[in-house]
Design a protein around this nucleic acid. Structure first.
Lengths: 237, 237
DNA sequence: CCTTCCATGACCAATATGAACGCAACGGTG
DNA sequence: CACCGTTGCGTTCATATTGGTCATGGAAGG
């Protein structure tokens, strides 16, 4: 699958360059263009589409000199341009966020952010694309099932980290993550228990939290008698 | 907080009535109107907005007599109507799903569905609203933080879990389904055993469950010595 | 000193496995 | 043509482990 073409819309040159550089560092994405204001963004979108290389993803700033980001989005939709939008902005008013969702913003990044945050959002977007992009070779399977769609939506909106539920502590979570980094292959709750000297219950609770948050995958390990043991591993992009 | 005003757009009277009834059964939602086609839907949206009671959520069928659902969504956006949209449709083509996401569909329900599924989707939408609606009491907190936004997006995630019979696990069932997607022709229990590394008994139990549920067909495979082997395949509708 | 929070140990429930038995079609043989 | 041994999968059952939950204990904070 070819790279996802990205358009960066941002008026401030420093931020604009930073975003472009970030895009360049991400595998699976390529920079299709940059625009400093709304008018040129819309014009670029039209030109690239006409050239047969339509933009698939727009990193859109909300505060631009000529148009508001929401206006740009509305005009895009009105013009039939269905590129996905990730909002990148310092605006944090709830009403704006709600409107952005309504108009089809798939992710919302609040400035300032680190590359890790940026990477996380774009990765989950890429995963979403992959899950819907593969009709999975199947002969007659032209469509997706409800669970397929659900899964795709889930990876689109999975947060990097939601606030810790009661009963979990930051330091323990860090220990578990640290151990996972070293054993990047696959880990079972029992292994974590033995390695970190904690109880099986605790180890399992943290692994389970990470799996629910979408950071980890969870799959049963077959082949041995007894109830299957869950095996946790980092999610592969 | 007052109820969320819902507009049902659906041409078939039976389905339309069912959706309306479903909305009535959900706490926190109220039926604002019903439309059998795209034109009346757009007109109703305008009228209700003018009357000071704007629709906040549209349950939108994709196949309508006059306009396609995506067209309606596009015109809504062009007209500045920012109601959220939940697509309710039998269309399962991946391209449609992708376009729907791009234009701001927050949930995607594939017909036919049970009330449980419906309830699940609307509940998560309601949660999403609540999380963004509450300015969180805080003194100077006029806006949302990145984690606030993440959390709200996360509620739009669809965990959609339907109960399984005792003795079966979700992840194993997913593995089997995944393998079946890749080999859409026909599969035997022994093949699944070898491919997924599980025992023959387990593989057969899951295939048997899927066959009983009506998802799979089951036919004996003759020609070789030994008791005939059951062969499973996707049911052709 | 009281409250809150987090990890623990012990319990019951869940679920894949292996072995044992039965069954249905195949391929000779009378 | 009928019969019987062979073959391999279907089916059942006990078993082995782990997952999940609950109440408890100790530590940290006010």
């Amino acid at each position: 699958m070819s790279d996802i073409r990205v358009l960066v819309v941002e008026d401030e040159p420093v931020a604009s360059a930073a975003h472009a550089a970030y895009v360049g560092r991400m595998a699976g994405f390529m920079l299709a263009g940059m625009a400093p204001d709304g008018q040129s963004a819309l014009r670029l979108l039209g030109e690239l589409a006409a050239a047969g290389e339509p933009v698939e993803l727009v990193l859109l700033d909300m505060n631009l000199p000529d148009l508001h980001g929401l206006d740009i989005a509305r005009r895009m939709r009105a013009a039939g341009i269905l590129a996905d939008i990730i909002a990148i902005t310092a605006v944090r008013e709830v009403a704006i966020v709600r409107s952005a969702v309504a108009i089809g913003v798939v992710q919302y990044l609040i400035k300032p952010f680190t590359f890790a945050t940026f990477e996380d959002k774009l990765s989950s977007y890429r995963l979403f694309r992959q899950q819907l992009a593969s009709p999975e070779s199947g002969a007659g399977r032209t469509g997706a099932s409800q669970s397929d769609v659900d899964q795709a939506f889930a990876s689109l909106r999975a947060p990097s980290e939601l606030p810790l539920p009661k009963g979990l502590s930051v330091s323990t979570l860090d220990s578990v993550k640290e151990y996972l980094k070293q054993h990047s292959g696959s880990v079972s709750a029992t292994e974590v228990m033995a390695a970190l000297g904690m109880s099986r219950v605790t180890a399992r609770r943290y692994l389970e939290y990470l799996a629910d948050a979408g950071t980890l995958t969870r799959a049963p390990r077959y082949g041995t008698p007894g109830r299957p043991e869950n095996e946790y591993g980092w999610k592969r992009p």
